[in-house]
Design a binder for these strands. Structure first.
Lengths: 232, 232
DNA sequence: GCGGAAACTTGATCTGAATCAAGAAACTGG
DNA sequence: CCAGTTTCTTGATTCAGATCAAGTTTCCGC
């Protein structure tokens, strides 16, 4: 991988602790590729031939069944996706599509598994990464089962505001239809739910969101670190 | 852990590959305990002081928010639970309660983390375990987001039938109220949905279920390995 | 075996959210 | 810059599932 993204990837937690030797082995087999928006990277059910690392851009992970489709998560740089399938040598459970122009490092799964077998430090880094992924899915499921659509949206907006540095105004990070799917509702219902949150000081104009009274919205949303905190 | 469950636990995938030395280290610190039904083992939000291994009985993992409660998963022997929190040294995301009389091995988290740091084989086994857990939660989320209550119930019954060796008749493995919560519906709705599945040959009497025409039920349920297969 | 408490069922009603159906607004490519 | 497409919004309607309210059955301890 003769590339300027070398440093970014090397500093990923997943690779930070491993030996230079193992890292070199991984990167020798890897290659970087640039994709335009809306490119299908992987399809659920396929075998996991590559570990993917998103270096820049954004990727949507989604799943389908019986003609229905739902967004499962959004991947932001710099992070890996479909690590579990790679390790288990099992079929992907989700499909992946670029949301914008994206640069992606791909490492053949067999190389990942080989280094994994030989380098204990790498194995430990994979554990931490997987444990984090696992916990984030558990949180997503709690969000889905314990909250109404309004509550999910309100908490999403609060988290988004945090990511914007606490500013009262910010832009939604992607299309509303994708947001709706991510939150487990229809686009129509998202529209209505956004208006319903006016009652708590939320004002929306296009992709621009203004949170008039954060306290008030929080009183309604009741964010919990055990659901909403991406770190913990 | 001077106990007859030694062999069962040792043969767990998680411990199978590690050195006798590391295993002994873990078990020296461990202890076994027997709990009656309905005992709260852990509460979400607490710090993960012990890795738990269910040797016999059954445990319900559930979560709460804002006064609402939902079952997240059922743990059956022999398997570990809350491994991710132990590794990450993070608070539990779920509470655990015994569903019946249960024997549980508890290993102090710090010992697990120490052996994890020193024994690469153990670290690798943890990875495989975590990857499996991760994939099972992803499947659960797909189930929840892509299927209606009827479809979730139909697929649950088919899986249950499989577990019963394909027999046309079998017993539900736990209370209906817990099943309802697990499937993301109310007990009332579960009752009605069970009756609705009569249209596909499902007959229920108490906890006893009879699947009259498996083909017919499958045509409705459309089970998919990427959601319903616990292994893949 | 009896009394009380759960768990379960059934019915009536209500409500959150999906669907259907048009418009309005925004983006896209020539 | 404009035609065409897609996204977003809004309204009307439908529907799945929740809630409320009784019953009924099952379970459990004395």
């Amino acid at each position: 991988m003769p590339d300027s993204h070398f440093e970014e990837v090397r500093s990923l937690h997943l690779f930070a602790g491993m030996s230079d030797d193992s890292y070199a082995r991984l990167m020798r087999a890897a290659y970087v590729q640039s994709f335009p928006p809306e490119v299908e990277l992987i399809a659920e059910g396929e075998s996991a031939d590559f570990l993917h690392i998103l270096v820049s851009g954004a990727v949507d992970l989604y799943a389908e069944w019986n003609g229905r489709r739902t967004s499962m998560a959004t991947v932001r740089p710099v992070s890996t996706f479909i690590l579990a399938a790679t390790i288990r040598d099992a079929p992907y459970l989700m499909s992946a599509v670029t949301m914008e122009k994206s640069r992606i490092v791909m490492i053949p799964s067999q190389d990942v598994r080989q280094v994994f077998d030989e380098d204990g430090d790498f194995a430990r880094a994979v554990v931490v990464e997987l444990a984090t992924c696992y916990r984030s899915v558990v949180k997503a499921q709690k969000n889905l089962k314990l909250r109404t659509a309004q509550e999910r949206l309100a908490n999403f907006l609060l988290r988004q505001q945090q990511r914007a540095g606490g500013a009262a105004e910010f832009d939604l990070p992607f299309e509303k239809r994708r947001l709706a799917s991510l939150l487990g509702m229809t686009p129509e219902n998202l529209s209505r739910t956004l208006r319903a949150l006016q009652a708590y000081g939320v004002l929306v104009d296009g992709a621009r969101v203004r949170i008039g009274d954060q306290q008030d919205l929080e009183r309604f949303a009741r964010p919990s670190p055990l659901i909403d905190d991406p770190a913990s």
